[in-house]
């Protein structure tokens, strides 16, 4: 929605996009396949890709014809992103990539990956040095994808193995060895969106329905606190997005919103379970089905996109403690 018209975008504001994202989340709409490209990959391409690539790929994203996955985590590199060891070696034909990415959500549906590869060793002074972002066509020879089923029985995760995969020279995104410089501004977008507190919101709506129009004090208090918390998180998230619209880089604020938002959306199914424990009026089959699903997926909410521990360290740095 926010992208330039020449690449198929609408040039709408971030807040317009915010509203649409919110409504998708509240409706629990199946948007995951295209959301990665819209939120993260597209903006990276807009900023760092060569113009011929932008002209080729971005319009296809806006038409809903191509999906992206994120090639960051590895078996030995999760929160410690800068420990990534999948290697890209410069050759005459392009870059040769070897190594393994793990926990790659939706790689099995994706057309492209934005992969973070090691192009030189880190240095004593800067352990973040030496990594480069690449646009990778996932259908290239030398890439194999295997499923990793999650504990909810779903196939989202994948292991992506690169075996001498050749990536063209013009697929480098941004500065070679300098991917770390690109990270900070993107993180604020990734961390402050409505998806960071609304992922289990349907549980709150359905809990209110299940508890009925005349709740006892215990139920009413439970609803009231959860609604107050949700409302406040939303006001914070909207405000961070307003800062982004104004061209600021609210990295600290984004970390706070994601920390508080994901802890809240993770606790919501448990609290809803407590509050509905004595309720068996009406037909709660639908609620129980949703609750079971939400409890299953809850653990991931404070892990994906930056763990609680990493976020609190960022906040501590913002407070001048590190």
């Amino acid at each position: 929605m926010t992208w330039p018209k020449k690449y198929g975008g609408q040039e709408r504001s971030f807040l317009d996009r915010y509203v649409v994202t919110e409504e998708f989340r509240v409706a629990n709409a199946p948007v995951r396949a295209h959301f990665t490209a819209d939120r993260q990959s597209g903006p990276v391409l807009l900023k760092y890709a060569a113009d011929e690539i932008k002209k080729d790929v971005l319009p296809r994203i806006t038409r809903g014809e191509c999906c992206f996955c994120i090639g960051m985590s590895e078996p030995n590199s999760g929160s410690d992103l800068f420990a990534a060891s999948t290697k890209a070696t410069k050759t005459d034909e392009g870059w040769r990539v070897n190594g393994t990415k793990l926990w790659t959500s939706n790689a099995h549906h994706a057309d492209y990956m934005i992969g973070l590869f090691r192009t030189s060793p880190s240095t004593e002074e800067n352990h973040r040095h030496g990594l480069t972002n690449f646009l990778v066509d996932i259908t290239l020879p030398g890439i194999s994808i295997s499923p990793v089923h999650n504990m909810a029985g779903l196939h989202e995760f994948n292991e992506v193995v690169f075996d001498d995969c050749l990536v063209p020279n013009n697929h480098v995104l941004g500065e070679i060895n300098g991917a770390w410089k690109q990270a900070t501004s993107e993180l604020a977008y990734e961390r402050s969106g409505p998806e960071r507190f609304l992922e289990t919101f349907y549980i709150l709506t359905e809990m209110v329905r299940t508890l009925g129009t005349e709740p006892d004090n215990r139920s009413a208090e439970g609803i009231g606190r959860l609604v107050a918390q949700a409302h406040t998180l939303r006001r914070m998230s909207v405000s961070v997005n307003g800062m982004l619209q104004a061209g600021m880089e609210p990295v600290l604020e984004g970390a706070i919103v994601k920390d508080m938002g994901t802890v809240w959306e993770q606790a919501l199914p448990r609290k809803a379970r407590d509050l509905t424990a004595f309720t068996d009026i009406g037909n709660r089959t639908n609620f129980d089905r949703l609750l079971r699903y939400a409890i299953h997926i809850a653990p991931k909410l404070t892990i994906q996109g930056g763990t609680t521990e990493v976020l609190r360290s960022i906040i501590a740095r913002g407070l001048g403690l590190r």
């Binding site: 209110v208 004090n217 606190r225 609604v227």
Partner: peptide, 24 residues
């Protein structure tokens, strides 16, 4: 306050919850 807010939300009904939050 939570009891009063919860009662208001419950009386409005589940389908009015998100529209109220989104109106702010």
């Amino acid at each position: 306050w939570a009891v009063r807010l919860g009662e208001m939300i419950a009386t409005n009904g589940a389908d009015e919850l998100w529209p109220l939050l989104a109106s702010r």
